[in-house]
């Protein structure tokens, strides 16, 4: 699935990374707990989170995550967008809550990451 498809499925706004929307996403993870995200290796993953702070961007950076989706209409600050741009990270913002967001992506074929 591409990031563009994710954007359409979640009816999300693109906060940054418009030029990277055709990148492929293989797995997904939904969590507000960054240490849980850091515990599992994911390949070209999208992270769905309600945690809208710089550490969500940092976590994505460390994990090589390609796309971050903020659920429940959360919008990143300029500092966060700058940090995301430095790391070629796409940020989307959807009005949907966490559960329906994950459900819709799962329904469309996206699956969770793998344990190492």
């Amino acid at each position: 699935m591409t990031i563009r498809e994710i954007q359409k499925i979640l009816d999300a706004e693109v906060c940054c990374g418009e030029e990277l929307l055709d990148r492929e996403v293989h797995t997904a993870c939904g969590s507000d707990l960054m240490s849980d995200v850091l515990a599992f290796v994911k390949d070209q993953a999208v992270l769905l989170t309600g945690l809208c702070n710089p550490q969500a961007i940092r976590t994505a950076e460390m994990m090589d995550i390609v796309c971050l989706v903020f659920v429940r209409s959360k919008v990143p600050t300029d500092t966060m967008i700058e940090l995301a741009r430095e790391n070629d990270l796409v940020i989307l913002s959807t009005k949907l809550a966490m559960f329906p967001s994950c459900g819709l992506l799962y329904e469309n074929g996206l699956r969770g990451g793998s344990r190492i």
């Binding site: 507000d32 240490s35 849980d36 515990a39 969500a56 190492i116």
Partner: peptide
């Protein structure tokens, strides 16, 4: 509330 402090830091570092 900032996304950490779940008791996974040291286990993740070891892992």
């Amino acid at each position: 509330g900032l996304g950490f402090g779940a008791g996974m830091g040291l286990p993740n570092m070891k892992k």
